[in-house]
Each structure stands twice: as C-alpha cells, then as structure tokens.
Design a protein around this nucleic acid. Structure first.
Lengths: 248, 248
DNA sequence: AAGTGGTCTAGACCACTAT
DNA sequence: TAGTGGTCTAGACCACTTT
C-alpha cells in the first residue's frame, strides 16, 4: 500500500503531541520503521506535521518512555528492538478483584495481639517477642475464596495507621490508592510456594498445590516499617502477565 | 527544621525540570506535602523557582508519570496516596544474569524438528502435528544451572528469524534488546509450578521444589506467533520484587 | 471573575556527532 | 560546518472549577 501522508487534526480532542505519538507508533508497528532504523529528524517531523519543535519533542519523549525508541544526541532517534529484560508485570488481576467491590468481600478471620516471631521482628525491626497486631483475612470473589492474607502490624495505640489498617476496608484503600493509609512506600516480593494445610483448607484447594506468595512490607513517612505480611493464592487462580513490545 | 528555601542551580548538569522534580519529590517524601494535599499551583512554582511555565509543566508531568501526584484541571495538583494495585514487577534479576556475560553461559541441550503438540499448535496457531523446531537450553551462572528454557519455533526455512533464534546467543539479544530478532511483541505469563523430574535434575534441585514458570509467546511484524515456550527456575533462585510509593 | 491545569508557538541557545 | 537531539523562554489561548 502507498504511503498515505498523514496530518494532524487540529480540531480533534486528541492533542497534537498525542496524534504524533500515535502516527509514529503505527509506522513502527507496521514495520515501516524497523528496529535499528532512524526516525525522521525532529525538525523534519516539525515541518511534516506543521507543529513547533516542543510539540515534536514531547511526542518523542513519550516514545522514549514507552521504550519504543532510543535517542542519541547529535545522531538521531532510532527504533529499539524488543527487550525482554525490561518487561514489567502488573497486578491487574488482583487489582480487578479489589476494584470490583460488588462481587468481592474481605472476611476478617482473626485479629490478635501476639509476640513477634523471629521473621516478623526482623522485618519490622523490633525485638523478637515484642507485641504485634496479627491479622488474618480471606478475600472472596462471588463467595469463592481467592486470597489469604496474613499481616503483622507494629503495635502502637498512638499511631493512627493502626486503626485504619484494622478496618477491613483498608485493604481496598491500599490497592486503589484511596483512603488515608499514612504509608509512604512498600516492598513487594513474589515467591513461588506450596499451599500448606491451613491455607489449602481456606482456599478449598488441595495441600501442596503450587501457589504464589506475595510478601509485603510497608513503611510510614518516618521510614519505619509498620506492616509485614503476605498474600497467598493458588497458582491457577491468579497469574501475572506482561506485554512487551508493540501491542496496537 | 525550618523550610530551607530551595533554588534552581542554572549551572548544574541537572536540567531545571529535573531539579524541580527532585525538590518536589523530596517535599513529598519528607511529609511536607502529605497524601491528599494540594501542591503549589504551577504559576506559583514558576515564580518560586524563576522558570517558565513549560518547565514546571514538564516537571509535574514527570511526577504524574511516576504516580506520585494526580492533576485535576481547574482544581490543582494533589499528592496521591500509595496505590498497591499499580505496582509493577521487573525482571531485574533475570536481566542481570543475561547482562553479565562474563559469568553466564547458555548451553544448548537439544534442538530437533518435532510435530507440534496440542498446546504448542494452539499457541502458534498452526495445525496440531505440524512440524516445529524444538530447542532446549540451560542457562548457567558461574557454571551453576539457573534456568531451563524450552522453546518451540515455527518451522519455516525462508524466515530469517529462525536462523537467528537458533543461535545460542540470541537469548541474550532478546533480553538486552540488542540483536535483530524481527520480533514485534511478546506475551509473558508467570506461573507458579513444581519442578518435574527432568528439570529438577537439570537444575540440581529436588523434584517438587516450588518453581517459577515463565511462559512466553513472541510475534513477528506480521502479528504471527513465531515462538512459544517457557523458562523454568527454582523459586529460591529467583524472585520478583516491586517497589511502590516513594523510595528516596 | 479569578484561579487552576493543558496545549502550543516560534524561536533561542547548548551539546554532541558526523563529515 | 551542518545536522542532530536537549533545554528553556515568555508568552498565548483554551477548558475547567470555584467563588
């Protein structure tokens, strides 16, 4: 097919820079610009579409962020080839569950004050045996158990985050970013594991089923760890996927 | 401590927009702006730092991309609270292994033409029993087996990608984005699994050890699947982690 | 009406690379 | 020297929200 010269629609709700991103993406996706190829220079794109340099710059910066191109000062902009190592996995599925409050439910199984185990104490940087709040939750979707959650919280009645965390709904807040959690940052680690007897029973699965263990540590604005725990779910209930390269 | 009024260093190698990003980040990280708080208006930031609107705009856009703030037209810019659901997991560890060519080695265990199984045929959208190229690799780090790889390639001698893929080194290219793979996009799925006898032996681990199975499908620029397979590694050899929120 | 974010211009100047 | 990307200006105009 011939090159259909494409232009910017100034009346569109889609801003000029976004239109340029889209057009360049399409040309890369279609193979018109192949990996390694040099894109037209920014000034060329300016005159081609009749926009100012800043607008083109912005578009190129977006392609750069998206990992589709690399830029070399003094040389030009080049199409990158697919890079497996830079792929990222999102918690889409988990997020969907938490977002869909209609069909999901958090069940509080247990909440107690307990002495911290070695592991927990280390994660929370407190002395072993110090008291922590232990919470056990079960997340259900359509009354079907999906996810176990086990959490250990710093025990400090003066800290408001504790009350907020105890609230069953705070889990939703953590996932959706709503709610005032007072948490500055978190570390998540995915491990592969086997369901133990207890979790298997809760999730109505066979023991020793392959499972994901999503360990988490959360820190407050004083950089103190305030929560350590893990989500556990059977492997066939959840998978992590990533798309890499150009998906139109 | 008192507010130390911070200014832009025009002589720095760090561009003005990046300095503004850094300064705003610091103020958010320190709790000076808390989640939910409104940031100073862009025009206020302009006059505070003595820069033009476009420069501030760019800085705010970066904070937006980083998920630290939200903007509402007509209202202002606000600090977001931590959102667990938007965390992404990177293959850093895997990438490190592939990047460090000095200490890592790809061993070709087997390469044959075989009829496609049901699964493979489905993934490659070819008829079951059609011939595919089957490749089995082992990735070693310091002569220590880390990763098994099993791959099925469309058998088409006219397609150059096949030759490239057969090359042992092409795996490095895929991860690092170097090399001309002719691949447009890929889909990756992480599953939790148990090591079977064969893989356990290769990885010198006990059978039924928890493991990650990283399934992949790659598509060429005609949107045809050309490769389907999986990486397998024992869980204690590799973990996926994500940082969410503000890590200084 | 006043204040906010969002887009865009038409240049300028700089740093770097190639020839 | 000519061409490339990278930063930045000093405004303009628009869309939106609040008062």
């Amino acid at each position: 097919m011939p090159d259909t010269p494409q232009t910017i629609n100034r009346d569109s709700y889609e801003p000029a820079y976004a239109q340029i991103v889209r057009l360049l993406r399409q040309q890369i996706a279609s193979g018109q610009f192949r990996p390694g190829n040099q894109l037209p220079s920014e000034s060329a794109i300016c005159s081609q579409y009749g926009v100012s340099p800043m607008t083109v710059r912005r578009a190129v910066n977006i392609l750069l962020d998206q990992g589709l191109v690399t830029t070399v000062q003094g040389r030009g902009t080049f199409v990158k080839s697919l890079e497996l190592g830079s792929s990222t996995f999102a918690l889409d599925e988990l997020q969907d569950i938490f977002r869909d409050k209609e069909h999901s439910k958090v069940q509080l199984l247990r909440t107690r004050i307990v002495p911290a185990s070695e592991n927990v104490a280390h994660a929370l940087t407190i002395p072993p045996g110090a008291r922590v709040i232990y919470i056990r939750r079960l997340l259900l979707k359509n009354d079907d158990p999906i996810l176990c959650h086990e959490e250990h919280l710093i025990y400090d009645p003066t800290r408001p985050v504790v009350e907020a965390e105890m609230d069953v709904t705070s889990l939703y807040g953590l996932f959706s970013g709503t709610g005032e959690t007072g948490i500055k940052r978190g570390l998540l680690v995915i491990r592969s594991a086997l369901l133990d007897e207890e979790n298997a029973a809760l999730l109505r699965a066979k023991p020793s089923t392959p499972a994901f263990c999503l360990e988490h540590t959360f820190f407050d604005f004083n950089n103190q760890p305030v929560s350590y725990g893990y989500f556990i779910c059977s492997s066939d209930r959840l998978k992590f996927s990533a798309r890499v390269g150009i998906w139109d």
